[in-house]
Write a protein that binds this DNA or RNA. Structure first.
Length: 510
RNA sequence: CGGGGGGUGGCGCAGUCUGGUAGCGCAUCUGGUUUGGGACCAGAGGGUCGCAGGUUCGAAUCCUGUCCCCCCGACCA
């Protein structure tokens, strides 16, 4: 048995690679993972973060895959302005109301020097809102673009930053400015728009589960949780390791609400005039927060191989010049060999870490960053024709593998890590979905007494009334969604005891 | 936005109550010894204490304002 604390001869012994454990303090642990993995940091601007290469690389890999799927499902990328005229966003009543509190507003367009300082001057006649989302702006364009049924459907997407002046920012989960994609489509018929909404939610489910290894529950939002202005909002809900829910992506059927507001209409075959049915859907950098809180452990981040900026990190071990002369070229050579293989549709991403620092420290830095496979290559390995392999899923089990066995199986090893992460997360989540809560007393007892060991979701029948939902408020519990897979038989509402036909997921949420 | 806690070399902190011009550990740099699970010894560099103003002979310490961070709550992707 090796002792991972061996190097800690002085000072406080460390049991884990990072300072906080999930159990002791989940919020602190979350921040510590981000810091130790060198993913992002706060900036001097409230609620706005600097995304560092390891965090941004993860985002880019997620983005690359999703962008591909967005194109494959018939959409095209566009770009719309960051600023929205105030009078434009006022057009859809429910929409404004929903976003009013969190909109940043530009009121001036110029600065003048005064007493050595710069002061805003040139007040705008009409203020501009920094987009919190682009339904209104894109709706304006749709109205111009669409004349005839032959122009439909219009299916576009944009990768952009948006601003929502949130009260309580948290890195990746809720930043004032965040990166996302927003898809916007306009259709001739309700059915087509509803199908689009469902198609994109399924894309999000696949992105979360197949790509990020995050198990999610797809379903429909209750009325109170709907996107402002939407007829229906569909969501994928994930469970974090503290048992809280995180909405990881949404797809909205907007009906004709925005079409009426922006006058998006077309002439049909009969010459009649109709309003379009529109949709919108988005996922954001919040997904990275979901990944951290799904896969991270007390030694830091664990990145699914699909999106890891480096899937394999090679650590050349050289104690002197002579060893370096042998080991460094060998490490490069190994990297080149690995690059002949493809995993998840891309050439295996290999990095040789040649930084001049202690090997143990170097190794821990990659463990904290969550690189899926760490390969140590030293003179001894060279003599034996082998490599020392650590998988991030089992950091205390180093195995020596022959190079000719290791290299050709790299794809398989990465895939197995991917599956292991998904299976582990799924087992964790499923064990924390309670389905045996009989009545509201038991429900309250559960949510009042939950802690980091027991917290989770309750799945139970719900009568779908706003009043019953209101009574959850004091508990801090919300209805996350009505899952698509529903039992055939009706039951009774866990809150009111009234007859109910559908089950809902109840949870505390981010 | 309400309640609570904070901002002191890169990181983590002490010092603040009882003003006297900054200290510890880690990290960094140099030299040496080391090196396959977060090395050791010696030496060195680095901060004016979030920012602005005030009180004072003198402010990290007191007062006012302000910005930012963390936790809980309400709000939200």
């Amino acid at each position: 048995m090796s002792n991972k604390n061996q190097g800690q001869q002085q000072g406080k012994p460390k049991k884990t690679a990072i300072r906080f454990t999930r159990e002791a303090d989940f919020p602190q642990w979350y921040q510590e993972v981000i810091k130790e993995a060198d993913m992002a940091e706060n900036s001097g601007v409230r609620g706005c973060m600097v995304i560092k290469p390891w965090g941004f690389g993860i985002w880019e890999n997620l983005q690359r895959r999703l962008d591909k799927r967005i194109r494959e499902t018939g959409h095209e990328n566009c770009y719309f302005p960051l600023f929205i005229p105030l009078e434009l966003i006022e057009k859809e009543a429910a929409h404004v109301e929903g976003f009013a509190k969190e909109m940043a507003v530009v009121t001036h367009h110029r600065l003048v020097a005064k007493d050595g300082k710069l002061e805003p001057a040139g007040e705008l006649e009409s203020p501009l809102v920094v987009r919190p989302t682009s339904e209104t702006m894109i709706g304006e364009s749709f109205a111009k673009w669409i004349r005839s049924y032959r122009d439909l459907p219009v299916m576009i997407n944009q990768w952009a930053n948006v601003v929502r002046w949130e009260m309580r920012p948290r890195l990746f989960l809720r930043t004032s400015e965040f990166l996302w994609q927003e898809g916007h489509t306009a259709h001739a018929t309700e059915q087509e728009a509803r199908d689009e909404t469902a198609t994109m939610l399924e894309e999000y489910r696949a992105l979360a589960e197949d790509w990020l290894a995050i198990p999610v529950i797809p379903g429909e939002k209750s009325e109170s949780e709907r996107f402002p202005g939407a007829v229906e909002t569909h969501t994928i809900e994930a469970m974090m390791q503290d048992g809280k829910a995180l909405q990881a992506g949404t797809s909205h059927y907007l009906g004709q609400n925005f079409a009426h507001a922006a006058d998006i209409k077309f002439q049909d075959k009969d010459g009649g005039e109709s309003y379009c049915h529109t949709t919108s859907w988005g996922v954001s950098t919040r997904m990275i927060g979901a990944m951290i809180m799904t896969h991270g452990d007390d030694d830091g981040l664990r990145v699914p191989p699909t999106i890891a900026p480096h899937q394999v990190v090679i650590l050349p071990i050289a104690r002197d010049e002579d060893a370096a002369a042998r080991v460094l070229p060998a490490a490069d050579e190994l990297a080149e060999k690995l690059k002949n293989y493809v995993a998840f549709g891309d050439v295996v991403r290999v990095h040789v870490d040649k930084r001049d620092m202690n090997t143990g420290e170097k190794r821990w830095s990659w463990i904290k960053k969550g690189a899926p496979i760490i390969v140590e290559l030293g003179p001894r390995d060279l003599d034996e024709g082998s490599v020392m392999v650590t998988k991030r899923t089992r950091i205390h089990d180093k195995t020596s593998q022959k190079v000719e066995a290791f290299v050709p199986t790299i794809t398989e090893q990465l895939v197995l890590i991917q599956y292991a992460l998904f299976d582990e997360a799924t087992a964790y989540r499923d064990a924390r979905i309670k389905t045996d809560i009989a009545d509201f007393d038991a429900f309250k007892t559960y949510f009042e007494n939950e802690d980091v060991h027991t917290a989770g979701f309750v799945r139970a029948y719900w009568c779908e009334t706003a009043e019953s939902e209101e009574s959850l408020k004091d508990l801090g519990v919300t209805i996350r969604c009505l899952p698509y897979d529903q039992p055939e038989d009706p039951g009774v509402c866990v809150i009111t005891g009234a007859p109910a036909t559908k089950q809902a997921i109840f949870a505390k949420a981010y």
